[in-house]
Computed example of a mutant assay.
Amino acid sequence: MGSCFAVNMAEKLDYFKFQNSCNPFGILFHPLAIEKLIDFAVSKKQFTENDIFFHDERWHCFDVHSDSSNSSKEELLESLNAIIKSTNQQITESTHFIITYGTSWVYRNIESDSIVANCHKVPQKLFEKELLSVEEIKKSITNTVKLLHAVNPDCNIIFTVSPVRHIKDGFVENQWSKSNLISAIHSVLDTEDCKMNTEYFPSYEIMMDELRDYRFYAEDMLHPNQVAINYIWKRFKETTISETAFTTMDEVSTIQKSLSHKPFNPNSESHLKFESKVREKITKLESEYSFMKF
């Protein structure tokens, strides 16, 4: 769960056929938004008409990403509550949670006096911008850990800070924001209550220190490009994924590359033999891992 960098890592997990779910409520950037939706899922709270609003001909919810917005009020509520149900099941069954925080900057809706996850292009004058303090973030992270461990005491939780820079806040403000996140995470992981089954993966630090060059950024000069994503994934694999999975990952990768192969002559005997061998490999893996589908 978390920022768009969480999506980058989920795409890698998808590629290697790990069972995973990414951002059921859409991309979320700050700790309070993630905590709130985990709380909703754990407690099976239902969204009601009080949680949604109409703007620009669509119904929205301040607690979720605009990807969930809908022209139908009923369909939006039905969709959100279905996600609550499925996320509750995933939280109780998952072995690992990877939470990627993007920013400490938040927007408070003046009318409701509540911090939102997404402003949905509602006029900015209706919000106040705030920076979460280290203490506020620590409290939110601690609550998140307790919520997950309450229903899944053996799960592992990996925290990371997104390497995507939020330059719209300003260069100094971006560093301030990231530093509050990093300080809070390490403070929480150093406490007795949260030491068990929790760890930190340094996505942001790898981007800043090992890939300290603009050639590792996309055209917007803010998001890591594919070379950087591949590098950070390599570090994640080395430090977080068991070596016992590497052989299977290599087999999956070989099949994925074969499936993306564009033949010069699809009807040639050599290509038909190639396809047959690929099918054999797929059948073998799918018989060993029933959840894998190519």
Score class of each variant (00 low, 15 high):
140 S>E: 02
212 R>K: 13
114 S>I: 12
48 T>Q: 08
191 T>I: 10
138 K>P: 07
221 M>Y: 10
188 V>S: 01
21 S>R: 11
186 H>S: 13
199 E>Y: 10
118 N>E: 11
50 N>C: 11
161 V>G: 03
91 I>L: 14
9 M>T: 05
139 K>V: 02
194 C>Q: 06
179 S>W: 06
134 V>K: 08
65 H>M: 04
202 P>N: 08
56 D>A: 13
128 E>R: 09
254 T>S: 14
239 T>M: 12
255 I>G: 03
257 K>W: 03
260 S>Y: 12
268 S>G: 15
49 E>Y: 10
225 N>Q: 03
85 K>M: 12
276 S>G: 13
129 K>Y: 14
129 K>A: 10
132 L>H: 01
214 Y>R: 07
201 F>W: 11
190 D>L: 10
32 L>A: 03
4 C>F: 07
191 T>L: 12
128 E>C: 03
163 P>Q: 09
38 I>T: 05
146 K>N: 15
11 E>V: 07
291 F>N: 10
131 L>C: 13
116 V>A: 05
208 M>I: 11
126 L>N: 13
30 H>D: 11
30 H>S: 12
47 F>N: 02
132 L>G: 00
198 T>Q: 03
243 E>Q: 15
136 E>Y: 00
188 V>N: 03
132 L>T: 06
54 F>V: 05
128 E>I: 07
238 E>F: 01
242 S>P: 02
197 N>K: 12
229 I>Y: 01
138 K>G: 03
176 W>G: 02
53 F>T: 10
233 W>E: 04
294 F>S: 07
117 A>H: 05
54 F>R: 08
178 K>A: 02
268 S>Q: 10
248 T>E: 13
136 E>G: 08
61 C>G: 06
283 T>K: 15
291 F>K: 06
43 S>I: 09
88 N>K: 05
